[in-house]
Nucleic acid binder design. Structure first.
Lengths: 339, 339
DNA sequence: AATTGGCAGTCCTGGCGCGTGAGTGCCAAG
DNA sequence: CTTGGCACTCACGCGCCAGGACTGCCAATT
């Protein structure tokens, strides 16, 4: 429908608009790019692009800005995704290799992504749906308070404090700990509920109530592992780019604190063959209709995975951000996916 | 220096300005408050207050707004701090009582504070400087990778993955675990470094290198417990109140992400006899010079404590916010401070 | 000595009109 | 299909002006 040159005009408009934040006119294009044709010709192409709703004019006589659809075509057509420079790659490795534990990997990853892209960075904790129990620890806090610590082979640790129905001595706790680990260590999380249910039988009747309270806590741990969490950094960048929003950034920030919106977003995004995807403008929820989200997946362990990405105004540097997201996702996979 | 009535004029100005965000003039004061004197008299008092730098006029002929110093006097003189309503108190209890563990208490506390005050809420993790070791767990991840889990009696759990210099079998790990717990359980964190240093001697020479790597990891855990952390919620509220900042909110948000600034702030703030303190405007760091921070302390265990509070524009509802912060701090103390 | 009404003066705010300039749409010619 | 030319359209910045909300000061009053 639109000629090849028209597409390149679109690219020029997107690039110039991203660089200057000002509507770009036909004259500016012939000046800044080597099209070898006159401004009038460019104008004809622009009329075409406008008809296709790839660009729009804020008011009758002014330059054009890309529409959501325009950004979409730009991203699909011109996602050149030049690899990052060697120095940048090395910086990623050097920074992430310092991580001391899983939480730290994620904390560092968001900060890194945020500073590479100058956008809000998001990292989803892996679901670990098929993770296995590595170890269960019971720590008495007082006669009737017990802390349960639940460790999976993905390296995730959860703790929880429960109130026991009656007093439990050290010996009994030791017995319970031993039986729990014997029965559950190495089991998939999905098996925990089945095993835990049959556990009470192996204890004297007057202990069973206490055991089932503990079993219930274990189910809570499994749930907590299913429930995804997010870490975020660089929210200040949204305010810095406030001028790119015609509405307020307030609803956007609200949506960011409302993690459920973001988790839904991540779960809906399918990573394409390049390993990185963008969702632009109205393709998102109402609250995020003026933003774009660039996402990639990373692997954890052998067969578990989660997403990470950045969020910013639709007027963002897609090339750079997509390259950064892809590179970071790859490095994190390399870090956590190895066996 | 300033008359009693002048102080009440200051109070009226602060209250009206907080309510309307508009400079308040002498006429508005006689209309909205029962001073029983004429506008001209109020004007004389206002001239006095201006001389004392408690209020200022944005431009020659317009109402006055409080200065930082004016807010300070207002807070010191008129901190009536009416207790929250019974319904609000009950809501605090009902919400916080649902917490399942320590992290959850803090997560709920920030959300609660943020929604009670419509400001940014901050909760500092307790330092637990005099906490004791409750339990140490070692979990083999692979032949040369070991996860160390470090649990203190405050209920805090830390994990970390370390690389061993040579392979370690289950038996050796079990022995190490037993010896570590025998030597360290019940010890104060400050003792860990001393005990850990002498630990290697008790093993065969070819094990010592591995043992000292583990000992080093334990020191890392102790450090992590010393290093305070913060949780935050409601950053979106800052953007909502953006109109109250003459500069941008961007540096404020940056400072919020830079936790070190906030930790320094918390450590400098001394809670007064009412149990709650405010720091206003330029009393803070440069980046926070347009904000006010209301803080209170809460107790954890018997003798450990930390701070929590809210941050917002200097034009905030001090009475409400101070009451909310105090009530929440008290409830959290009640929750975590009990023995 | 404190208070008050009156009055002149200040300065922000919003509306109006106008020239300027960037950029478009269209057309007829190449 | 491309190009130069040309009329047309708006947003933008500027100066100007009237209205309004205050203040500061002063002389009279209590």
């Amino acid at each position: 429908m639109v000629s090849d040159r028209a597409l390149h005009v679109l690219r020029a408009i997107v690039q110039d608009y991203i660089a200057s934040r000002e509507p770009v006119g036909s004259k500016a294009i012939v000046d800044r790019h080597q099209f070898g044709v006159s401004a009038a010709t460019i104008r004809n192409d622009m009329a075409l692009l406008e008809e296709e709703e790839l660009i729009a004019a804020p008011h009758t006589s002014s330059g054009r800005i890309p529409t959501d659809k325009g950004y979409r075509v730009f991203v699909d057509q011109f996602a050149d995704l030049r690899p990052l420079s060697a120095a940048q790659r090395q910086a990623i490795g050097a920074f992430l290799d310092q991580s001391v534990d899983l939480d730290d990997v994620f904390a560092r990853t968001v900060r890194l992504l945020s500073s590479l892209t100058n956008q809000v960075a998001l990292v989803q904790y892996p679901a670990l749906g098929n993770a296995r129990v590595r170890h269960i620890e019971l720590v008495p806090m007082s006669a009737t308070k017990l802390m349960t610590v639940f460790i999976t082979d993905g390296g995730r640790v959860d703790q929880r404090i429960i109130e026991l129905p009656r007093e439990a001595d050290e010996v009994f706790v030791g017995e319970l700990r031993a039986k729990l680990n014997a029965a559950l260590t190495g089991q998939a999380l999905s098996e925990v509920s089945i095993v835990a249910a049959s556990l009470a039988e192996r204890f004297a009747p007057d202990r069973r109530e206490t055991v089932s309270v503990v079993a219930e806590a274990l189910l809570g741990h499994v749930d907590a592992h299913r429930t995804d969490r997010l870490v975020m950094a660089g929210a200040a960048n949204l305010v810095r780019t406030e001028g790119d929003f015609v509405g307020s950034v307030y609803p956007v920030l609200e949506a960011l604190e409302e993690q459920v919106t973001l988790l839904k977003l991540f779960s809906e995004m399918q990573v394409d063959e390049h390993g990185v995807t963008a969702r632009i403008g109205r393709e998102n929820d109402e609250a995020l209709k003026e933003t774009a989200v660039v996402t990639s997946a990373y692997r954890v362990g052998t067969d578990s995975s989660a997403k990470l990405g950045v969020l910013g105004p639709t007027r963002m540097d897609y090339s750079n951000n997509m390259a950064a997201v892809r590179a970071v996702a790859r490095y994190v996979s390399h870090l956590l996916g190895e066996e």
